[in-house]
Amino acid sequence: MNSVPAEVWSIFVLSLGVSGTAVMVSCAAGMPMGVWLGLHDFSGKSIVRALIFTGMAVPPVVVGLLLYLLLSRSGPLGSWEWLFTRRAMILAQVLLDLPFVVGITMTAIDAIPRELLFQLRSLGASSWQLRCTLLSEAEPGLLLAFATALGRSISEVGAVLIVGGNIGGHTRVMTTAIVLETSRGHFAMAVGLGAILLLVALLINFLVACLQGRIAQ
């Protein structure tokens, strides 16, 4: 049997790795989408916006359930053999984070007046320079998107429990470990894990606040 600290450490690292990867993937995919949506006007944009905001409200267990049915060996993607693996957990969290990343990025870009773009071009900005300036103007929003995604990922339990299976050493992350320890009646361990989770969240948001403070200057 593993000693307790080693087990906690592995759960902690697994949480960070899975959620971190999910956030990176959803930012890499979602931010360009959000920027594009924020910059372009097209018919049906309000419908897209409504869909994205609905995506934010989808309960994680529902995502977990749908993903389970898809990834199950008798489901359409069963041949991937992703069920009860970290990949499935990352996929679930990416799906959960994506609406937040896209929506918040889109809103942040939308909030930049179109006239600013014209004025920047008149000052001699090439289209690439314009994009970079735009991103830096929207930086507080992008950071918010990042922090929200990370917060949602790392504290999420419903979806990863269903598609990850809470297998010790494989797919047991902090939240699912808390569920397990609670059901075992090991409240001290559960509370300890909860405290670590809280600490991580605090650290992330402190970091984001630091970054946003720098921007404000």
Binding site: V13, L16, G17, V18, G20, T21, R86, G169, H170
Partner: peptide, 18 residues
């Protein structure tokens, strides 16, 4: 620093795999 933490976590994650 944040990216580094993430990369280390990924690295360790593999190490913690059975």
């Amino acid at each position: 620093a944040a990216s580094l933490v993430w990369l280390i976590a990924i690295g360790c994650m593999e190490q913690f795999s059975p």
